[in-house]
Design a protein around this nucleic acid. Structure first.
Length: 586
DNA sequence: ATAGGGTTAG
């Protein structure tokens, strides 16, 4: 007993390393290596570093990515293996530029790169083609004589493909006699991503051996990138051993075109599904107007024991947003938390959007304020939420906060804040923000002018609104004249209303709604002959106003109301309440 | 070298 424990102490802590070593065990091993001065041994240090990098890149870990950097910095003289390990780790992380920075340090330390270093490094370069860092690496590779290495060449091909420099990629490809299927597939993918699917097809037809990747690249190219699902499907049917990615790619090709029916048919017959297959279909239903089915699928997925991930969660949360089902949304939110599914910025933004649309603005704001890192979309969602729920002032304040924090903005940000101003009739603020738009790097589009027109229109400054439309550098869209027309109805201006209606007619946008508005304008002024004329015009052209509809959730079940349908089982009670409310508001 | 995600008024 005594001897065995003695023996254990004498053994290297590295013996405790195995595939399922936990984070806390790693920390212990790390501490032991330090106290026993074993870190001076580059081999021992590199073993530990590898284990840390492997665990840090697994999705379920709580290890911080910077822990690996810390460990590297504690190694007195890291060997090439350690450098390669950390470069590989960063090249797969969310911030691949770190791989390039680490490589620069490696060179400063005078450590020689080997034929493993370059492929890892080029992987990072390919992920950030705009940095053009791969060009310098290419020169380095030429100097060091790693030019005959398949992995290095494939890395270079992939980098040039992602940079859009197909000619350089092609030259390397043609000049290398030991190219393998990865070389062929990379080049094919490069052509597909540049929109030259015909060139990709030529390669596909002459390549010596096709694997699942080759088929998948072309199926995806025809389907999603070219929108030609027919040809994608022909390839798909022809493919001998379809793998999961191909099925998913084909299904997503249909989904991208809104062809949910064929997508569902494939989904139902596919031999096996993973969380990606479910996400594609759930997302498809969400984007193409069937959030109920999306939620049903999500539920089915859970009951089949498939664990949702953060991307799948976005689909489910968005479905709740669209349905306004706060109960379900809350349930999904707590499900995600209970099951330790990492809520990144995108999921959190989707959640905020869900709480906003389900009417729990306070909770949305709470989540928003608690978020350490926000994206443009996060700010936009919150601002739209405040603006459309009667908190125009708060939306504008949020905008100013964004400005103070120097957060980047896009045209939607400006649209959100201007819309909020329009909603709350904050004319001076809106005008001031509009005038400073270009200072935020956003050039006003028709929608932004629309808000300004709306603002002026609501304030009764109809002629100024008309001037804005006429002076704007972009072509006025129908909605601008529509906005002016609506303002004319509110403020009873027949003259400008007629001008607007005329313009709308020129744009071919004089639908039923315009005639209804016009007849309202005339009616308000007592011009009954004109009103009659409008009514006749409408029935002669068979026009109807768009039918209004609304959806609401009560105690977990969803009720849909269509204007004038009278189909709800409790319509008597409902209309009685509506009647009382209307009276109360008078 | 292949597959999935969040925001747009009236």
């Amino acid at each position: 007993m005594a001897t065995s424990s003695h023996k254990l102490l004498a053994q290297s802590p590295l013996l405790l390393l195995h595939k399922s070593t936990t984070a806390s065990q790693l920390l212990q091993i790390h501490a032991q290596l330090i106290t026993r001065a074993l870190f001076a041994d580059p081999f021992a240090a590199s073993r530990l570093l590898l284990a840390i990098c492997d665990l840090s890149s697994s999705p379920s870990t709580h290890l911080s990515p910077s822990y690996a950097d810390l460990v590297l910095s504690q190694i007195p003289q890291p060997n090439t293996f350690s450098w390669n390990t950390i470069i590989r780790f960063h090249s797969r992380s969310s911030n691949p530029v770190k791989a390039i920075l680490v490589f620069a340090r490696m060179r400063r330390d005078g450590v020689l790169a080997d034929h493993y270093t370059y492929p890892f490094l080029l992987k990072a370069c390919a992920l950030m083609p705009e940095l053009k860092e791969g060009v310098a690496i290419h020169a380095d590779v030429l100097k060091k004589g790693f030019y005959e290495n398949l992995f290095v060449i494939n890395g270079l091909i992939s980098f040039y493909c992602r940079s859009g420099e197909l000619a350089s990629a092609r030259k390397l490809f043609d000049g290398f006699q030991w190219r393998d299927s990865v070389s062929w597939n990379s080049l094919m993918a490069g052509y597909v991503n540049c929109g030259d699917i015909e060139e990709a097809r030529k390669l596909f037809d002459v390549m010596p051996a096709r694997d699942a990747f080759s088929w998948a690249i072309l199926i995806d190219g025809y389907g999603k990138k070219l929108g030609d699902v027919r040809r994608a499907r022909d390839l798909f049917d022809e493919m001998p051993d379809k793998d999961l990615a191909c099925w998913n790619s084909m299904i997503d090709g249909y989904v991208a075109l809104g062809m949910i029916g064929p997508a569902r048919e494939l989904f139902d017959v596919m031999p096996g599904r993973n969380v990606i297959s479910w996400s594609i279909l759930i997302g498809g239903y969400v984007r193409h107007g069937d959030p109920k089915e999306a939620l049903a699928l999500f539920q089915q997925m859970l009951s089949e024991g498939v664990r949702p991930d953060k991307i799948c969660a976005v689909g489910a949360v968005s479905a709740c947003s669209q349905l306004g089902t706060l109960d379900r949304g809350r349930w999904i939110h707590s499900y995600l938390k209970k099951n330790n599914i990492k809520l990144d910025v995108v999921v959190q933004t989707a959640l905020i959007d869900m709480y906003v649309r389900c009417g729990d603005l306070d909770f949305a704001r709470l989540l928003f304020d608690r978020m350490p890192k926000k994206s443009i979309v996060t700010w936009n969602v919150m601002m739209v939420g405040l603006g459309t729920n009667g908190f125009g002032r708060e939306a504008v304040e949020l905008f100013y906060k964004m400005e103070t924090e120097g957060a980047p903005m896009d045209d939607l940000t400006l649209l959100a804040v201007l819309t909020a101003c329009a909603h709350a009739s904050l004319l001076p603020e809106g005008q001031e923000i509009f005038d400073r738009m270009t200072g935020f790097g956003v050039h006003p589009k028709a929608e932004h002018y629309g808000c300004l027109v709306d603002l002026l229109g609501r304030a009764g400054r109809l002629h100024e609104a008309k001037q804005v439309i006429e002076a704007m550098p972009v072509k006025p869209s129908a909605s601008l004249w529509g906005s002016l027309l609506a303002a004319c109805r509110t403020h009873g201006c027949v003259e400008l209303a007629e001008v607007s209606a005329e313009q709308l007619q020129k744009l071919g946008a004089d639908d039923g709604g315009v005639h209804v508005l016009m007849s309202n304008v005339y009616a308000a002024e007592g011009m009954w002959n004109e009103v009659l004329k409008m009514r006749k015009l409408m029935s002669a052209r068979g026009m109807k106003k768009e039918i209004g509809r609304s959806v609401v959730e009560v105690d977990g079940s969803v009720h849909e109301f269509v204007n004038g349908d009278g189909a709800h089982p409790r319509k008597e009670e409902i209309y009685a309440v509506v009647c009382n409310l209307s009276k109360a508001m008078l």
